[in-house]
């Protein structure tokens, strides 16, 4: 039997006797992103530890869960990726820590019009040939729709690529647009930085 500790709590700052760097180490070892999102509610220091970008990075390095989605190179339709994930899920067993169905998530109404996807570092980029592009993080269930690229001609097909700039740690989406009568147009969008697409010439 453990004694009730509530009356012994003397800390008013919300910090326990455990130093933040040890807490940081322990929390990065918890594979479940769902648990970590919940633990932000424990206290101010928990929230700030878990929310910092260095935490995400350390967690990513230690955990095997995020590699799941990252291990699918190339372009997929939603249905193929989900099929592949199911296989991967069986192979990894306990490491599959989404805590909910990726299938259900990718079939949310706002994603339904997006037909293709690529993934990198646990992020998924979805798009279609009508210039709709979204980037989502299935682990945190956050998503963002990117602004539309202004078109002067009809697109035959679009293809998106996800990349990571290792110096700025920012993810970028590169979109190739193929028109019926010309060479592809390339546009790039840096997540968390750009407000609109920037055309680049290759």
């Amino acid at each position: 039997m453990k004694p009730k500790r509530r009356t012994e709590i003397v800390s008013t700052t919300g910090n326990s006797h455990i130093p933040d760097e040890i807490l940081f180490d322990i929390l990065t070892r918890i594979p479940s992103v769902k648990s970590l999102l919940r633990f932000r509610c424990v206290s101010k220091s928990f929230c700030s530890i878990i929310s910092q970008s260095s935490f995400t990075e350390a967690h990513h390095q230690k955990g095997s869960s995020n590699h799941l989605v990252a291990s699918f190179p190339g372009r997929f339709t939603r249905q193929t990726l989900i099929g592949n994930l199911e296989n991967e899920k069986k192979a990894h067993k306990n490491n599959f820590q989404l805590g909910f169905s990726l299938f259900d998530y990718l079939n949310e109404p706002y994603f339904l019009k997006l037909l293709y996807l690529v993934s990198l570092n646990g992020l998924i980029c979805l798009w279609n040939n009508s210039n709709d592009v979204a980037v989502c993080n299935p682990f945190t269930r956050q998503h963002v729709f990117l602004p539309k690229v202004i078109m002067t001609q009809t697109v035959v097909f679009n293809c998106c690529f996800l990349g990571l700039d290792p110096t700025t740690k920012k993810h970028k989406v590169l979109m190739a647009q193929q028109f019926s009568n010309s060479t592809p147009h390339w546009n790039i969008f840096t997540l968390g930085v750009d407000k609109s697409w920037r055309e680049i010439h290759c």
Partner: peptide
């Protein structure tokens, strides 16, 4: 409770 943390949020 496990980490003896008071909620300060």
């Amino acid at each position: 409770e496990m980490l003896k943390i008071t909620n300060d949020l």
